[in-house]
Design a protein around this nucleic acid. Structure first.
Lengths: 164, 164
DNA sequence: TTTAATGCAAAAGATTTGCAACATG
DNA sequence: CATGTTGCAAATCTTTTGCATTAAA
């Protein structure tokens, strides 16, 4: 049974631990940026984080906030909501469907499943609102990337690889 | 049993029908932009659509593509992938969870469900790739907005509403 | 003929980058 | 001390807007 840090205090500990482990410097700016995201349950955007941190640290710059947030994501300490760094994309497929997103190449592929269109939602949702539709996003590695990776692994170990 | 237009031809028909129904002018630019999205299975971004359309219509401007795509979305003819027009947002909650997104106010709230973390995925996924994790996004109306709406409806019908 | 849509150019936003000064490990 | 990090300003990239012109219904 895994445990996740869910108090602000635990999250800060986890943050410091991981920075140390990665040889990443523990600067006051980083601590404040992380604290700001960690204590907010609201999925803040960059501006909100910036505003929040500035109250305690008025000299911090916006680009440091950007850099820090991406660094935190890289370290797996925060997660990006919605479609990450990508541009807006459009889909004319109106048939209800789901998406498989490849974590390597970022490509999104459609798939269909009747079961997933109306899954059993938990009771706790009742306290939040009235559901209208459900969409499932599966993250994974697509076969295309899988094959590419296999090839690269081979290349690393084999100096006779014809592709080199 | 609903039917969705899944051939390019059907989609074009549907598009023309809906434009007419909404009194929206059927310009060559709009037709080309829609055709470009409709025929591509790749969830193209704005630039791709622009490039694609320009091959047949070299004078079209990028802002027309933007305007048209948003108009198509408004008409329900295309769907936006990922987190729409919003900014990037961050989340320090690492515990696996799902999101309830309010279609009115756009706010995202977390919810938890063990069942949804490992739902039964369809066979068809095997042809796409190897799943690592699953995330469910429920769209609906949150109670907050629901109440706001109720109030507005009341206001419209009641000139004595104390809030007016 | 009326009204909405287009193209252009400029503006506005969001995010990134180069670089010198600075702070952490 | 060495290296990674910061702040600033400028650059870049994406998206939106005002306006005169044009085209659809």
């Amino acid at each position: 049974m895994e445990m996740y840090p869910n108090t602000l205090e635990d999250r800060m500990k986890c943050f410091e631990e991981i920075c140390r482990r990665h040889g990443i410097k523990l600067t006051p700016q980083r601590m404040e940026v992380f604290r700001e995201v960690a204590r907010s349950g609201n999925h803040p955007d960059v501006e909100s984080v910036y505003r929040g941190v500035r109250e305690r640290m008025p000299t911090i710059s916006l680009d440091t906030v950007y850099r820090t947030l991406w660094k935190l994501e890289e370290l797996g300490l925060v997660v990006v909501l919605g479609s990450t760094r990508e541009r807006t994309r459009f889909d004319a497929n109106l048939e209800p469907h789901h998406h498989f997103v490849c974590v390597e190449c970022g490509k999104t592929r459609d798939f269909y499943s009747k079961d997933l269109l109306h899954p059993k939602l938990p009771e706790s949702l009742k306290t939040i609102g009235t559901p209208l539709s459900t969409h499932v996003e599966v993250r994974g590695v697509c076969h295309e990337c899988r094959m590419k990776n296999d090839k690269n692994v081979r290349s690393e170990n084999n100096c006779n690889d014809p592709d080199l």
